[in-house]
Amino acid sequence: MEPSGAMTQMRHLTGEVERIAVEAGVGARRAQRRGKFWNATHLMLGFPAAVLAAVSGAAGLTSPDARVPAAILALLAAGFSSGAAFLRAEARQLANLRRRYAWQDLEVRARLVLAREAYMTEEDLYSALSRLLEQRRTVPSSAIVLSELPSPPTQPEPPQPG
């Protein structure tokens, strides 16, 4: 291949590696933001549920007149707890943490390829780009990661008569 054609091909391959690095950086930041959101959601639902459960138990035991407020607090605690279980916020936070690490790893590898690009042949750069594209395909989507996590515990079936 003529020198100008080789340079054009190298620039094109380098541009593809740069696009992968940018995409991976954006993906990592998005996964981090989503992880923070789900972590905050987990805390906002779980902590009040625990506090309300404790307060309702203490209120119910203090006097017979506190039964109604204790029952209301217990219902609120159950609502927060059910909401947390339904949303699976903790699982979603962990899933986004995995996605973030996968994107960050891809970005680092792409930046390493770019750092070495000046010393690589066209074939080496093409091979490195192929490996990066394969790694990009392995970055888990949020749906796949969530399906791999254990499902929340369910209520046992009531015993059947007979």
Results as ranks from 00 to 15, higher is better:
24 A>T: 07
24 A>V: 09
27 G>H: 00
27 G>S: 11
28 A>Y: 00
28 A>N: 03
29 R>H: 11
30 R>S: 13
30 R>T: 13
30 R>D: 13
31 A>D: 02
31 A>H: 04
31 A>T: 04
31 A>F: 11
32 Q>V: 06
32 Q>T: 08
34 R>F: 07
35 G>Q: 08
35 G>N: 06
36 K>T: 12
36 K>S: 12
37 F>Y: 09
38 W>I: 05
39 N>D: 09
40 A>I: 06
40 A>C: 11
40 A>W: 14
41 T>V: 15
42 H>V: 02
42 H>T: 11
42 H>G: 09
43 L>Y: 12
44 M>P: 01
44 M>N: 14
45 L>R: 06
45 L>Q: 02
46 G>Y: 07
46 G>R: 15
46 G>M: 14
46 G>Q: 15
47 F>Y: 13
47 F>C: 08
47 F>E: 15
47 F>S: 14
48 P>T: 05
48 P>R: 08
48 P>F: 02
49 A>V: 13
49 A>N: 14
51 V>S: 03
51 V>D: 03
51 V>W: 02
52 L>K: 02
53 A>M: 11
53 A>R: 09
54 A>Q: 01
54 A>S: 10
54 A>T: 15
54 A>Y: 03
55 V>Y: 01
55 V>W: 02
56 S>F: 05
56 S>V: 01
56 S>R: 01
56 S>W: 06
57 G>N: 06
57 G>S: 09
57 G>C: 08
58 A>Y: 02
58 A>N: 04
58 A>T: 00
58 A>D: 02
58 A>E: 00
58 A>W: 03
58 A>S: 00
58 A>M: 05
59 A>W: 03
59 A>V: 12
59 A>P: 10
60 G>P: 07
61 L>P: 07
62 T>I: 07
62 T>D: 01
63 S>I: 01
64 P>I: 07
66 A>V: 02
67 R>E: 13
69 P>K: 12
71 A>E: 04
71 A>P: 04
73 L>Y: 04
73 L>F: 12
74 A>Q: 13
75 L>F: 14
76 L>C: 15
77 A>Q: 04
78 A>S: 10
78 A>P: 01
78 A>G: 05
79 G>D: 04
79 G>R: 00
80 F>P: 03
80 F>V: 05
81 S>P: 03
82 S>W: 08
82 S>K: 00
82 S>I: 06
83 G>R: 08
84 A>K: 06
86 F>D: 01
86 F>A: 15
86 F>R: 15
86 F>V: 05
87 L>G: 05
87 L>D: 06
88 R>M: 09
88 R>K: 11
88 R>A: 02
88 R>D: 12
89 A>Y: 11
